[in-house]
Nucleic acid binder design. Sequence first.
DNA 1: GTGGTCTAGACCACT
DNA 2: GTGGTCTAGACCACC
Lengths: 122, 122, 122, 122
Amino acid sequence: MKFDANLPIYIQIMDEIKRRIVIGEYTSAQKVPPVRELAVNFGVNPNTVQRALSELEREGLLVSERTAGRFISEDVEKIAALKKTVCEQKVDAFIKEIQQYGWSEEEIMTTMKERLQYGKAD
Amino acid sequence: MKFDANLPIYIQIMDEIKRRIVIGEYTSAQKVPPVRELAVNFGVNPNTVQRALSELEREGLLVSERTAGRFISEDVEKIAALKKTVCEQKVDAFIKEIQQYGWSEEEIMTTMKERLQYGKAD
Amino acid sequence: MKFDANLPIYIQIMDEIKRRIVIGEYTSAQKVPPVRELAVNFGVNPNTVQRALSELEREGLLVSERTAGRFISEDVEKIAALKKTVCEQKVDAFIKEIQQYGWSEEEIMTTMKERLQYGKAD
Amino acid sequence: MKFDANLPIYIQIMDEIKRRIVIGEYTSAQKVPPVRELAVNFGVNPNTVQRALSELEREGLLVSERTAGRFISEDVEKIAALKKTVCEQKVDAFIKEIQQYGWSEEEIMTTMKERLQYGKAD
DNA sequence: GTGGTCTAGACCACT
DNA sequence: GTGGTCTAGACCACC
């Protein structure tokens, strides 16, 4: 995985795990891969992964069972809320950016529809 | 101005100049501030600004006149085309990102409308 | 190498590289010496060579591979076209110069033949 | 007039005057414009023109009459020889340059004919 | 070791 | 004062 040089890597790993939850790659009550495995896959130090997972635990998205490992929260509402907030964050960031260009809502909505319909976006 | 560590600064300056053209801060045939002045404002070396402006000149957005300075192109179509492509690029980037999350068009369009209407985005 | 004071050095380096391509010293798909080495050979700053090569890359004559170095384009037609245009440019420049002296075609062609045959030119 | 930065200006002025003789702008036995006038036209110091004219005098192309000014030599053979040598010098310089590119006589002659016929050279 | 970017500071031509 | 070029020297990512 390619990381952004500006954001702490553990944050970016948190985001990636959230993404996997959102798209259903990691589903409720499922076991999360062990730290070492993730560390290798991400190409980072295990400590960095450890930190990311701890943070996610603090947020209530992960729970750790002493010996068995770490699992995705069984709290379905929590997962649903995650999906919603992540989506809204992305949308808000986008809106903020386009507002820097002074574009009106209509312009953006129109362009989005065009781009989505013709499948030009890749 | 604050620069992203991942993208070359001269590219980001190009983008910023383009933004200023798009929002009409720099309008057709208008004089662009001198290299040294922009360099101070951006907090970078004059060479870096020089490079950014040269690239924009190559793209036909700017023209430089030996001793008088640099000017925004008088080619109105060029400017109009810029506005269009910049908008599309932003939209495409956004679409690409949200597709990583597997969201459907409807979800995104709905969320965008919500966020735009309630003005929660800032 | 000795540079002309009227033309930017990076342009003259571009011309020299083109010359080496034309005479086959640098041939298609071959590796070009690294920037720093060329800089030493030309007796100029690496940045100046960098610029020359970047321009040639933009012209499609060179391609750069991140860590491996720069290579002459594999586009054989491109190379062939280069040879043609360089030759024509030289000839045109010569014709322009002699026209300043009002010489007729016949005079020039005759003199050229003489000079070429007797091998007086060196 | 635009001067080359590498060659002494007085040499370039000599060449320009020779050119004017060759094309017949200055014809045999004609009076040469006064130093001051030439200096203004060339945009250089009168001393520089003075030196150029003195050199031309040494070469026997100009003669100075104490009070009347300077004149083009009446020696018709001298003028004819000038035309010949100037032409040969230009041709030789051209041949030397093209030989750096390894082009054969035929290639050059062919290209020259093409370029002359279609009048592409300007 | 490779290309790519950036800074700091200088000089030049042109007006 | 303007754009353009150049040098010297540095740092980075990639392999």
